[in-house]
Amino acid sequence: MKRHKTSLADFRPRIERIERRLFLKQSLSLGALTMLSGCTLKDDDAVDRLLFAMSRFNDAAQAALFNPTKLAPIYAEADLTTPFPFNAYYDEAFAPVIDGDAYRLQLSGLIERKRPWPLRELRALPQVSQITRLVCVEGWSAIGKWGGVPFRIFLERIGADTSARYVGFRCADNYSTSIDMPSALHPQTLLALDFPGRPGETKYGFPVKVRIPTKLGFKNPKFVTEIFVTNDNPGGYWEDKGYNWFSGS
């Protein structure tokens, strides 16, 4: 297993891409449009435009359907899926192994207190744990137990502008995703520090994963190294390839 220390250099390609996107303004639409082209109906841009417009309509429909107080069903220890499936855009062997002592969670965007957070300080915040079902966009599901800081408490602690529209995540495995603020503030959304699997296993996202039981699995980033708050939809790894952005459960 390779050691993975995060530094700004790791994010340079990503930052450049984001700058390019901000320049383009219609970033998400362009990115997703490009991806849908040639992947759905061959050379039929009108169809791709329709599918893309419907995906944005479905974002709005899902946001309207989202009830901020509706809780995801809770399961018992006996229901846990073991072993919990590993899933990422790469094989399990390539999952980053991060040094917990050197780790710092970076903050940026519309946040008052951007001081990076070491793991032990995250551990000092109030901790909860819950057993919920993770539903993958591929159709399968698995029940796992995650523990950590209620994300709303963390957002309040760092002085995040919770009137902003989006929370974005960047990860040590070059993954990224973003969610709407109402989902970020949902009572079950967790800054997870404890994961399914045996103690010491790091493949499920150590040291920090964001667990959102009201979202499909790919909206639950592992190995999170940076959290940012913004009013411009940051898209994400799969979202930019054409998957529906809201992807709520």
């Binding site: 599918l51 419907m54 995906s55 799969w238 054409g242 998957y243």
Partner: peptide, 13 residues
């Protein structure tokens, strides 16, 4: 749909 995301886009349209 060509691949999963395309098929989902068709399905949800």
């Amino acid at each position: 749909g060509g691949w999963l995301a395309g098929a989902l886009a068709w399905h949800f349209t």
